[in-house]
Design a protein around this nucleic acid. Sequence first.
RNA 1: GGGCGCGUAGCUCAGCGGUAGAGCACUGCCUUCACACGGCAGGGGUCACAGGUUCAAACCCUGUCGCGCCCACCA
Length: 898
Amino acid sequence: MQLAACRVAAMLANGRAMTIDKTFAPAEIEAKWYSNWEESGKFRPERPDAEPFTIIIPPPNVTGSLHMGHALDNTLQDVLIRYHRLKGRDALWVVGTDHAGIATQMVVERQLAEKQIKRTDLGREKFVEKVWEWKAESGGAITTQLRRLGASCDWKNERFTMDEGFSAAVTKVFVDLYDKKLIYRDKRLVNWDPKFKTAISDLEVETVEVQGKFWHMSYPLADGSGKISVATTRPETMLADMAVAVHPDDARYKALIGKEVKLPITGRLVPIVADEHADPELGSGAVKVTPGHDFNDFEVGKRAGFKPADMLNMFDDEAHVVQTEDGLIPEDYIGMERFAAREKVVAQLEAESLLEQVEDRVIQTPYGDRSGVVIEPWLTDQWYVDAQKLAIPAIAAVRDGKAKFVPKTWEKTYFNWMENIQPWCVSRQLWWGHQIPAWYDESGKPYVAESEAKARALAGPDARLTRDPDVLDTWFSSALWPFGTLGWPEDSDKLKRHYPGSVLVTGFDIIFFWVARMMMQGIEFMGQAPFETVYCHGLVRDASGAKMSKSKGNTVDPLELIDQYGADALRFTMTAMETQGRDIKLSSQRVEGYRNFATKLWNAARFCEVNGIGASDKIAAPPANLAVNRWIISEVARTRRTLDASMRDYRFDAYADGIYHFVWSRFCDWYLELIKPVLQEGGSADDAAETRAVAGWALDQILVMLHPVMPFITEELWHALGDRGRHDLVTAKWVEADDIDEEASAEIDWLIRLVSEVRSGRSELNVPAGAKLPLFVRDASEATKTRIAVNQPIIERMCRAESISHDEAPAGGAAQIVVDEATYVLPLEGVIDLAAERARLEKNAAAAEKEAKSLEGRLSNPAFVEKAKPEAVEKARTDHGEKTAEAERLRAALARLG
RNA sequence: GGGCGCGUAGCUCAGCGGUAGAGCACUGCCUUCACACGGCAGGGGUCACAGGUUCAAACCCUGUCGCGCCCACCA
């Protein structure tokens, strides 16, 4: 019995079964639609004649899992891609992952360590094999997660920075740059990471303020004539000191220049040299010089005549003490860890009474951003890219507007860095990555070529070649992503069609790491910047504004939010909160709110279905006579304009806001309410048919316009509302309707104002919500009378009026509502609190008078009338007239109240 | 030491020359036949501060205070 009743309730008038469930359950529809889209190739429809729109994904690390930053970044990209796909463009979202040198090597090494295996036990070849195995098994989890977010990437052409084709591109770029002398090998100080035992670039070094000490030490002069004071934050490096520097103009030390110091502990004899680096204002004015272990000292050392090859080195690759070339470090120091060596040096100096003073001091200390250990400046041979040369056209491209940053303010950051760019150290002492295509003969002369055979051709048949064991910085390959993924160096159609990309979406934090380098390489190898626009978004922070970090434990897992609220809700949150240039403070409340929005739409669609409103078979708006229908068609057009403008300007927040308000505050709150009398209270059949057609069309437009942000629910409803076969929303057509009916808009605006005012009056006077009252209209113009007549059923329903009359209202207490020229009277004899109504009218009258007075003041100022824009003056006049009239009518109503 | 950004309703943020907006939170009413993840109505802001430009400033300029971020070799 009960079952049968359910079944009946689940059938519609037209015989179709209800397809929209009572509750909106995101998880089911998400899984269903994503695989549907992907399997049917809907992310990449064939559109050979359409204008291309291309986005290259910032490739996530293969080791990565989706975090909020990805959720933001990829939501924005997907919104753009889906929007332009709907607009008919040939939209391509290139996807792939990054091999992430250090990160991946670390993961696999850690895994091996569990089995007590060291990377060196396996040897390079075996180890790299293990990494590939790892990748096959557990790499790329993030690609599954991107799918859960709804990212409509071109998965059929997924790339990896170490796949065959891409690797070939990397090798070619290296060789070409070498041949153009834009890559060279050099011996100099690098930032050495003693944990990973590799060089890293300047950018991978993070300077942190730490509490340290400043040690003042005495260095005796070699001739026994006295001593000189130096101060340092790193006393252990004195074991490799090669000089003491004083300022050439420092009167205190002029006589000492050229003399020698006999270093404590090592007994090394080193010269006192003049160098402007020594600041007479600081400390004693004399500074110890350790060219092999300090960037400043390296330069001082070079100026003092030391060649890099002769600079003393006292550390091995783990920053343990090793003997210097001259053999002067006492044996008991050898093998000591650097900080232990520091303590020992300090203790020994103290014992020898050579420690003058120890100060506490905050020190800027360099740390490896991945390893977290103190970086050691270390003298090694490395490969460098001449970034300064490559930067010149990359700067010009932005300066000339060929590539532009959004928001524009990031251009300053870009220029500032590019103009002061340093040589880029690109070699890494790792095993996982693109091995550098350089071979050395026995004398150490390098031959750079795309293969060993080609290197041999350069070196001659008799040379014994060994390959450079190092690999390239991961960012070196990432820099080629915009063209390497499109088939370069092959001159493919795809490359021609999709390079440069339309827009790059990324966090501002990798402008230097990645954007700048793509600009340089893209221009060098493709002749033009890799994208027209670089959209930089901020960071996703926790609700209190703190940076999310695993160590703080304040990270929010986007997948959990998806489980809880649905991918659409998360995507809407990211879109709505993306205001240009600001970081995002994420709160789950916000996500919940947008889940509610999805539910609202879901229920609106259910309402439509129940009322026989279904999929529209039209792209253009259906013909309409009723004002409500003409109005909603206009509102769709207005919304469309707003959304188009928002996308054009990359105003994601405005896009989200625009569709949100249209759906909730216009379509649901007013349109659906306004058409209820037509559909449910026996309006004419023609009117009902017209309304169903228009409502179905408007709902379709909502689905299309919302789809870029909420792809899942919109696709589900798209099909639930009618049988569209395999015509999916993902490849539907964006509304281009642009008809705006000013007359209908004015009428419905009036209707909305009338209903709102009456409701407000009733509410303020505590009229019971359900009470039906007669409504008397006075002073209405003919036009208003017509509008009232036409809209009578709606007005009665929404104002809870039992009748509407133009007769004079009965005497006695009443609520009076002023809308435009007319006054609407609700008799409340006996019920009304006269004092309350008087207060209400008084408040409204005072407000109108205040505004009228302010406008009057402005209009009576001759300067305003003369100098202000004519539109502004005109508007002030109109507003003044209206406000004055309104105030008069309210006063009249008050007078009537007695 | 340079550079950038921010300070608008209790909270998170739009607005960037014509006398203040949204979402959430808050208050009152409503189990009205799409939706209580809801409906209707409402309260709440000297737009950090001080000067200046302008007929008109939250919005432009200068300075002050507070808060963030980035870059930089003070040994």
